Simulated assay, not measured.
Amino acid sequence: MANNVKHIWAAGKVALNGWLAIPSGFSAEVMAQCGFDSVTVDLQHGVQDYQSMVSCFQAMQAHPVTPMVRVPWNEPGIIGKVLDAGAYGVICPMVNSKEEAEAFVQSCKYPPRGTRSNGPIRAGLYGSSGNYQTTANDETLCIPMIETRTAVDNMEAILDVEGIAGIYVGPSDLGFSYGLVPKLDRDEPEILKIYDKLLKECDKRGIYPGIHCSGPAGAAKNIAMGFKLVTLLNDSGIMATGAKAWVGETRKNSGGKA
């Protein structure tokens, strides 16, 4: 199975990413039909575990979305397991140094590039029998997160690590580390300056920058800045936003009866 996100990037376009916090194959199935290019299962802050992630992957497989995962931490065991389950992109939180970025890539890639153990129990079902190992290093995306002061200080060294396909900004933690209120859509000059530098450094190296957004307005703003992977909140947030709006509209139009 080819990685559709890679084709979108190669065509000079932006990939729209869904985000699954709800541990439900049905929720994943619904999201996969909504027009996203990729859908990411969140094992860090979502209410997901390994089994629910597999169920989400199975539910999404009938639809043309690239399955990705945010792992809970930069640890080779879980990174290998999500890849073996069929993840085509791994987003790794709190990567703060060149050494941590290199360790992440090592965990994602088969020898000789990395140290990933062979055993693609479910990923091996993609494509023809025995072919997965020959394409996995090229098709799977390593995407470390930059979301701290330390990571910003080490930005160029992190981006220089061979095997990194993209970078993912965590705006909430990034702002938090600078003493700002944690939120997704940022407008502070000091944060926008970081974004500007990151986008330029990524462009120099052919690396694709991604970012988490609170919705369409924030996504459009970040696309205009130059981000190439934008996430529209998550399934639970989208559901809550829609439900609140509908409840509010119904009460407003009820003539005081509701």
Rank of each mutant, 00 (worst) to 15 (best):
Y168N: 14
G166D: 03
P171G: 08
K252F: 01
A28G: 08
G25S: 11
D196G: 11
D203E: 15
S97V: 00
V82Q: 13
V5C: 03
R251H: 11
P93H: 11
G25E: 07
I79T: 12
D138A: 15
I223E: 01
G80D: 04
D153G: 13
D84T: 15
V69N: 09
S129W: 15
A21W: 06
S38I: 02
G86C: 05
P64M: 06
Y88H: 13
W73V: 13
V30S: 01
E249L: 00
K109D: 01
F57R: 02
A258H: 07
V230L: 04
P216E: 09
A240Y: 08
R251S: 03
D160P: 11
P67T: 11
F227T: 02
K6C: 02
V230K: 04
P120N: 11
Q61L: 13
G80E: 05
D196Q: 14
L180K: 12
I223N: 02
G175Q: 09
D160H: 09
D187G: 07
L184Q: 11
V41R: 01
P112G: 03
K197T: 14
G210T: 10
I8D: 13
K228I: 00
S236T: 09
R205L: 01
L159V: 05
A165F: 03
P209N: 06
Q106G: 03
K244A: 14
A136E: 14
A28V: 06
H63L: 00
